[in-house]
Design a protein around this nucleic acid. Sequence first.
DNA 1: CACAATTACCCACTTATCCCCACAATGAGA
DNA 2: TCTCATTGTGGGGATAAGTGGGTAATTGTG
Lengths: 154, 154
Amino acid sequence: MFRGSFTLTLDEKGRLALPARYRERLLSEYQGQMICTIDLHDPCLLLFPLAEWEEIEKKLKSLSSFNPQERRLQRLLLGNATDCEMDKSSRILLPASLRQHAGLSKNIRLVGQLNKFEIWDEAAWQARLCADIEQEQAQAGTVQLSERLQDFVL
Amino acid sequence: MFRGSFTLTLDEKGRLALPARYRERLLSEYQGQMICTIDLHDPCLLLFPLAEWEEIEKKLKSLSSFNPQERRLQRLLLGNATDCEMDKSSRILLPASLRQHAGLSKNIRLVGQLNKFEIWDEAAWQARLCADIEQEQAQAGTVQLSERLQDFVL
DNA sequence: CACAATTACCCACTTATCCCCACAATGAGA
DNA sequence: TCTCATTGTGGGGATAAGTGGGTAATTGTG
């Protein structure tokens, strides 16, 4: 599982060098096959090892072609999913369209999220981080928690 | 399974060159036999490998000839289904009637959707993409999700 | 049967992608 | 502090992909 966050740089060709600490694992466990797609709710990209992504595809497959909401989900996630194979320098090439979606500039933040990574523009990430912490503190004890969070123990 | 999206161009003869990354698979696995038909809900075409299309035909076969809605579905999908065999340059010829239905101009977007591709006019695809993302973000947490989506985890 | 229109094949050109190498930056160990 | 090893970054050039158009073959129609 992936965790932690890393600052990286996107070079002029749109390539991203993955942190050295993940390389061996991504190569041996997943043959360096990665899938990158957009996030639906935040201005960032999602980077999955292929095997993990295929789990998502299984779920997407069972959604209805006639329910507009489910179809939209399929179209957005699948339509933007791009194969990104690691090159021999352990870099992946992010297509221009995806870079644009997440507003990626040169400074990138790669965030480990269990079965995937999130790819943020560094500035957007910082802003979001501050906003999230603020909101979490502001609403402490005041807002109705979801059922799952009711029983969440750290 | 197919995923990802590609910008392609329709030439003056109405031919579409399929992305190189799929060619080998479409040839070896499906002998280059494709079926193209219209989509019922969006201004785009659907492109199936023949073997995958035959699965759809099985389902269509089991629909009632007396239920108007089901009959309509049969008529639209089957009536517009066209054989499109890949030529030796891995191109398919899209009939004028289908091109017209999807409003295809020169710039095309081919979108992988598991067992099929969607074929969009690039401008229409962009517009739809923006609209979908907007809607997805706008309704976050506010709209009732379908049962399947309630527990959808990325 | 002949003609026209459409379709398939082939070749050539332009553009983009991938592979490789080189250098810069960083950190560890002697 | 110097040296070496590893990681991060940049870019040139080979190769393949995408595209356009000429010509031959096939189909359909009068």
